[in-house]
Amino acid sequence: MIEFVDVALLVLLAITGVTIIRLRNLFAAVMMAGIYSLLSAALFVVMDAVDVAFTEAAVGAGISTVLMLGTLALVGHQEKKPRRPAIVPLFVVLVTGGILVYGTSQMPPFGHADNPIHQHVAPYYLEESEHDIEIPNVVTSVLSSYRGYDTMGETAVVFTAMVGVLLLLARGPLPRRVLLGGEWRTVRPGTTREELRAEAAHALDADGSDGDGSGGTTPGSPGSEDIVGEQGGKHG
């Protein structure tokens, strides 16, 4: 019975995955991604990893859906059609995947009690945590105490994500100096963003040769409405 649930969930996951790839409407894709997360959460529950399932449900299906919707509100929600079917990538993925299947075929069978992971460190946690830490949830003991330092690192990762997003998206006043067409300009107090933008457009025309072959800006990238290289502006 359990195996039947496993297979059914995996099939559903696969179908959802393919659907996400094929959808061109990004709103629908985001919704499907939410469903994908819920399905995987269910799969984790079946695998008895309740903590992981909980996290997946809260983060994957909850917050990240909201954030992706927030992004879509900024960049539009229709994916461009690819010019030609991606035969080469498909081929590469199939070949690489095939080799990987072969390569991992000797992995320890799933859930088997003789597996190395159940032989070495894990038994210690299971047997000793009750005495060491005296809380019943071993997952919490491992996460917060035995490997609490990793959790601290992960907290730092989360914080880093915030710093990164704020650096990229937050808006502030104009900088003291801006780079317009390869020239530093001191920004006079009281200059509006629109004036600078007009100047920038002018300077860019003059300095159109500044192409290092990087392919220029991506249309619709977050910086596209700003002065060259400087995101800023009145606080929203």
């Binding site: 917050i63 909201v66 954030l67 927030g70 992004t71 509100a73 900024l74 830490i133 809380i135 919490t140 003991s141 917060s144 105490s145 609490g148 959790t151 601290m152 907290t155 989360v158 914080f159 994500a161 915030m162 997003v165 704020l166 998206l169 937050a170 808006r171 977050p222 606080h235 929203g236």
Partner: peptide
């Protein structure tokens, strides 16, 4: 100790999630 660090995690995760939401929404 566990209560303290879990509190730290809670505060950070809450703050970061809302901050990111603000940043997107504020655009």
């Amino acid at each position: 100790g566990i209560i303290a660090v879990e509190l730290g995690v809670l505060v950070t995760v809450f703050g970061v999630m809302v901050a990111i939401f603000y940043a997107f929404a504020g655009r």
